[in-house]
Structure formats: C-alpha cells, structure tokens
C-alpha cells in the first residue's frame, strides 16, 4: 500500500511533491544505511555522508568527462567506488573505539569536504563550483523511481540484518567487543562487512541524488548540516530498528519543510534547538519512548 502510493507520486504531475518525495527518499536511504552499521554495532559513523558524496561525485565525473559511457554502468560504479573507499578506510577507522571512532569519522567527512574544495583538484571535481550534468528529459522521473528502489533496498537490508549471522555478531560487538571476540566472533570482519553494506547503499543513493538534481558541489553533499542529517534522523526515530530511521526521516523532513516555508530567519537556530531537545529527552529515539511503545503494542492488538 505505501509502495503503491510512492509509485504513484509522479502521476500527480506536481513538481513540488515529486522533488520533496525524492529528497525524502534519499535522506531516508541515508539514514537507514547509516543505521545498518551504527544501530547494530554501536559504532557512530559520523562521516557516513562520505560514501554518499563519493557515489555522487563518481557519477558526476563519469557523466561529465566520458560522455559516451553508458549511464546504467555509471550508476553501478557509484556504489562500487563508495565500497572501495569504505574498504580503504576500514582498517584505520576500526582500530578506534567509542568517542575516538566517532570523532575520526567526523574528521574524515570534513577532510573529504576540504579535498573537494581544494583548487588542486579542480580538474577532477570542479572545486567549489562543482560539476553540472547534462540533463535528459525524463531525469526527474527516472531518478525518482531509482530513489524508490534504493530506499526499499535500504529498508529491507536494515530489516533483515538482525536475522543474519552478521547481525548477531554486530549486536554482540555492541554489547561487549572483547567478550564477543573470545566467543569466536571476528569483530573487524563483521564491522567491515557492515560498513561495506552501508557504504554501497549510500554510494548508490549519492549517484541517484546527483543525477536527480543535475549538479554536485561540496556544499550540497558534504556541509556540516548534511553530514549529520542521517545521524539526527536516526536519533529522532530510534536506532537499531528499521522503522526508526524511517520515522525520523519523515518527521525531520516535514519539520524542515514547514520551517523553511513559515519562517524567514533562524532556520539553523531551530534545527539546533530540535537537536538539543532530542539529545536531552530522547537519545533512544521516538520509537523507544515508553509511551509510544505502549501505543504501538496496542495498535498491534
């Protein structure tokens, strides 16, 4: 039923609804894929948007530099490059734990921003101006359906992880990594697998996003607000449960949309206020609040 509704959105022929749903699906995918690692293993990857940015830039570079390259293949290369990047950073990152891991991954996101901004890499990434993609006619429709499919993939992945051996390993790591190790779990391998899954989904979402909006620059994929959006969405909704990032993404997108329309100043201020309130009163997320859980169990009968 919700899937049918999603598929029907382009039929409304309302560009506003279409672009809003597109953005919502992209952010939803980001939040779900972020939580694949962080929700189950407890490792807060604050630089998750790196994979999104790399996927997006991969698509943009391929489309602008090699115009004869088949588009479908470009879409496959964006998750691939994100995966390679994930493998590359997994060794240094997973030597760290707790606050160290969180900060190092955040630093990584910011590092990537400065690499894309650096004039020495202008020939590849276009610096601050970024890259424009030649637009095809049905761009918004194609990208919308791609976004629907990647969002569904992300939700299904998140949903099925706890039922797999990998999911159990991650949960054991979250409880106590050293004990998990003595019980025959290879923490490094489990964490890297989760990181690769989460990176490939985010990378694909990046490619779809850049194709959908038609351009990419460091600010659209890597500024501090975007960097932490998936984290915040997951926090609002609830972590380690597939409906958590979903709820958070929908709520935050609606709140932001209303704020942007109603208020001229202090968007960032109100966003910050939301963060403070969320962090203070419900770090486990909305779905973990006892009152809400009661309502959910009642609804289930």
């Amino acid at each position: 039923m919700p899937i049918a509704l999603l598929l029907a959105v382009p039929l409304t022929r309302a560009p506003y609804i279409l672009s809003f749903s597109f953005l919502l699906l992209i952010y939803l995918t980001l939040a779900e894929s972020y939580d694949v690692l962080s929700g189950y293993s407890g490792y807060m990857n604050l630089g998750h948007v790196c994979f999104f940015a790399i996927g997006g830039y991969t698509l943009a570079v391929i489309v602008t530099k090699f115009s004869s390259f088949p588009l479908a293949l470009a879409f496959l290369l964006s998750p691939l490059s994100a995966t390679i990047f994930a493998l590359f950073i997994s060794y240094p990152l997973f030597r760290l734990r707790g606050a160290y891991f969180a900060i190092a991954s955040l630093a990584l996101g910011i590092l990537l921003y400065y690499i894309f901004v650096n004039p020495s890499f202008d020939w590849l990434a276009g610096g601050m101006r970024g890259l424009m993609i030649n637009t095809s006619e049905n761009r918004s429709i194609i990208s919308y359906y791609l976004a629907v499919s990647i969002a569904i993939i992300a939700i299904l992945t998140h949903y099925s992880i706890p039922k797999t051996k990998l999911g159990l390993a991650l949960l054991a790591i979250k409880d106590n990594e050293d004990v998990a190790k003595t019980f025959g779990i290879a923490p490094y391998r489990a964490k890297t697998q989760a990181l690769v899954i989460s990176a490939s989904i985010a990378g694909f979402a990046g490619g779809v996003y850049v194709y959908g909006i038609g351009y990419v620059n460091p600010l659209t994929v890597l500024n501090t607000e975007i960097l932490l959006t998936p984290v915040v969405m997951t926090l609002i909704g609830g972590t380690g449960i597939y409906s958590g990032p979903l709820t958070g993404a929908v709520l935050l997108m609606i709140i932001q949309e209303v704020l942007w329309v109603k208020i001229t100043h202090f968007h960032l201020f109100i966003y910050g206020l939301i963060l403070v309130l969320v962090g203070l009163f419900m770090p486990g997320g909305l779905l973990r609040q006892t009152q809400i859980q009661k309502i959910i169990t009642r609804l289930k009968g």
Partner: peptide, 21 residues
C-alpha cells in the same frame, strides 16, 4: 551508552544555535 551520542547531538545543536544567532 547514550551519553556520548547525547552529548554530541546536544552540543552540536547548541553550536548551530550560536552560529545562527
């Protein structure tokens, strides 16, 4: 287990509020 994430989110929110003001 929730302290780290709470502290990052709350202080980040504060940072945004200060920046915007």
């Amino acid at each position: 287990e929730t302290m780290l994430i709470s502290s990052i989110v709350v202080t980040l929110g504060l940072a945004f509020m200060i920046e915007d003001s």
